[in-house]
Design a protein around this nucleic acid. Structure first.
Lengths: 170, 170
DNA sequence: CTCTGTAGTTCGCTTACCTAAATAATATAT
DNA sequence: ATATATTATTTAGGTAAGCGAACTACAGAG
């Protein structure tokens, strides 16, 4: 019985991974289109989204969460500042730190994004029955939890330079 | 009653979009790490994955599906060929066309990928109860369908230069 | 007060991505 | 047979991403 269950679980595992990969590819493609439609590059949009969620975040944290160096973050934030989408607000109790915050303009930019992915998804979502919508949300949130590890910011690095190929100066 | 339902649906819509964005971000980050771990860049890995699924595809189709120019695909395929992960096989009935196929080495590369995302996900998935797994798979497939439009290859372009910001020479 | 560590930026550099335009080779329609 | 369209590649060039190292400024410990 256990082995039977295992094999069923494995096949389902495959199915779910395949579905996940399809989601990934679709989102990858649209994420790029979306970024350009908003007038940003994918990396810049990622920064803006993270800042928008947190409403205030240190460059150091950004670097950790994105898995890039502080130097890179610095450059990305520069670009966003140049477009007045975020601001650098010096911290008060520790003046080494800087808080990156989203401006109203930045929020507007995110909101008005002609999000093709989102629109397609919204249409399909609205066609679902009530209970289906509820179930879908629950499942998506569960999957997000399953995947979202770095979101906690804390987990210092573990990622940069551990799993990665040597140096990654590609 | 309808308006009540609508507001509930809207809130749920927000929740599902948020969850979707979290999934997107997590996968984006891991996709990059994964690519470098495999010794490829994200764009190269995307090509390899698509080729692997189709087992034979024209550069033209690749360009359409990825939303980039043929010239770009040409360069990306060059890189993969240099690593012997794919091959260019001239078509027989139309000698303008070229079939890009994955080599056994390419398949191995994909298989042996130390897929951090996948591993994390697999562990969590296996911890779910039987019925939860089934439901999760069903939901993920549904979402994939909701998002996956370009997958059909056919839909010629619609993407390149339509939604996109002007020129996108950023 | 000095030393050490940390946050952030700047600089120089490398690589990747992507395009437009030109070119070559082949198909197809007239 | 000729003209037109399609597929793929090459070339030249621009922009972004990302890193390490050097540097500044500040905090905290001894």
């Amino acid at each position: 019985m256990f082995s039977a269950m295992t094999s069923v679980a494995n096949s389902r595992m495959d199915d779910s991974l395949i579905a996940l990969r399809r989601i990934l590819r679709a989102t990858e493609l649209y994420a790029r289109d979306l970024a350009y439609a908003v007038g940003l590059t994918p990396a810049q949009l990622r920064v803006l989204q993270i800042v928008d969620e947190r409403d205030s975040i240190m460059p150091k944290s950004l670097a950790n969460q994105m898995g890039v160096s502080q130097a890179t973050v610095s450059a990305l934030v520069d670009k966003l500042v140049a477009q007045r989408l975020v601001e650098r607000v010096p911290s008060e109790h520790d003046r080494r730190q800087i808080n990156v915050t989203v401006t109203s303009e930045g929020r507007a930019r995110l909101k008005n994004a002609p999000d093709a992915l989102q629109q397609r998804y919204v249409r399909a979502f609205l066609d679902l029955a009530d209970w289906e919508q509820a179930q879908l949300v629950a499942t998506l949130e569960r999957v997000a939890d399953m995947l979202d590890a770095r979101g906690l910011d804390a987990s210092p690095v573990l990622t940069t330079g551990e799993i990665r190929a040597p140096k990654r100066t590609y």
